[in-house]
Write a protein that binds this DNA or RNA. Structure first.
Lengths: 219, 219
DNA sequence: ACGGCGCTGGCAACTTGTTGCCAACCGCCC
DNA sequence: GGGCGGTTGGCAACAAGTTGCCAGCGCCGT
């Protein structure tokens, strides 16, 4: 057994960025997870940082970003992700679970977001090998079953506004007749909606549609 | 910014147990996650440990255990979980995702399983506040959407052996006619299976059944 | 106003799914 | 063998879902 100086705490994105920017500059394997774009990802657009990233060719670095599906409901955020993917060749996946903000560099260093204190979020920087491994394993477990952004995007964007309530009614097991009445639609039109929904989900039966919808976190 | 001696590594369950047993004895909030019962949970049945746990009254301690659904497919393991729940008043939930072996004590100390080296698994013990917080947040995120064992159990146990292939066929969007042929069943019988399945899932429509099945990780 | 375009919803024909009924069948125990 | 409980699967009646067709309506732009 041994003990090492392995965890460093920084407060606020500014400090985090200042301390780790040089690491991002050389890292060849970056993995990160977040519920939203509110924090370090925003700071990422700092001029210096942007410059730094711009200098790197896609292919130099393996970028994996894992976001929560709810994020996609915001068109601006969604566009931002797509841009990230196109400009930096980032692999972006979407999960339906909540996830703590996490960054892993080259499987050798972990940054975990802590809580807010005095308006600034604290971050733990971990370099201890076994701990990094543990966190990496947690990340991989979340990454593997997550859906590719491109897939998720095309499937969802249309659907969510196409059939917001239809999904609810279906998942409540309401019969078409009653569902149509609820939505003040003709049965024909309601069923048209269901058909469009199934089409968008690539489902051939309602059972399949249900499974897919749940899979995508729509219900 | 400050740096602390925050991570301790131990090798093998024996050492882990020796080092942390006293902590389990006094902890009032224990959270753990695992894919299987193969490791520390087995060691848990050590005589000393059993003795130690037996002395504590349920209610003294909040025990949360998160396991992977695949575990339930093994009847022995399933029974073990149920016993754990009944004897120690543990809250047990099931998730469909893989999850790294993790133990959190009183939200103040984290044990993360590392990899195997020389036949012994290594464990990182973390006490650093922010890091523990980060891991706790990850755990909570996994815990929240997970299903209560009791619920999961009654729903699943029967189903899995009731309708293993039926689920597959349904989720492939195969029509009853074809599905029945595939299983060399009469259409009537196949539909009987589907009905039983839906009943077990508490679903009133196939859409609902699909969503539930996906929710429970059955498809 | 007029025509085009898109969405709506009634109708109808058809498919698929849901259920009760019952005869046939199988394994088992007496 | 004969009775018994459980499963099977054909039949049928009915409910639910799927689709094409088409008339009606509102919203443009000309």
């Amino acid at each position: 057994m041994h003990t090492g100086e392995a965890v460093t705490i920084v407060h606020g994105e500014q400090e985090l960025l200042a301390r780790t920017m040089h690491l991002f500059a050389t890292a060849t394997d970056v993995a990160c997870a977040a519920d939203d774009l509110a924090t370090w990802a925003t700071a990422q657009s700092t001029d210096e940082f942007a410059e730094l990233v711009r200098d790197r060719h896609p292919g130099d670095v393996r970028l994996r970003k894992l976001y929560r599906s709810a994020l996609l409901l915001d068109p601006v955020a969604a566009q931002r992700l797509a841009r990230d993917r196109d400009r930096h060749g980032a692999h972006i996946r979407i999960t339906t679970d909540e996830i703590n903000e996490t960054i892993i560099l080259d499987r050798r260093l972990v940054i975990l977001a802590g809580d807010l204190s005095g308006g600034r979020r604290s971050y733990s920087i971990i370099t201890q090998r076994e701990a990094v491994q543990g966190v990496t394993s947690l990340f991989d477990a979340a990454w593997r079953p997550a859906t590719e952004l491109a897939v998720y995007d095309t499937q969802i964007a249309e659907i969510r506004q196409l059939a917001p309530q239809v999904l609810d009614l279906l998942s409540q097991g309401v019969k078409d007749e009653a569902a149509a009445r609820t939505l003040r639609l003709g049965v024909r039109t309601y069923r048209r909606r269901v058909a469009e929904l199934m089409d968008a989900l690539g489902a051939e039966s309602r059972f399949q549609a249900g499974a897919r919808a749940r899979e995508l976190g729509l219900v």
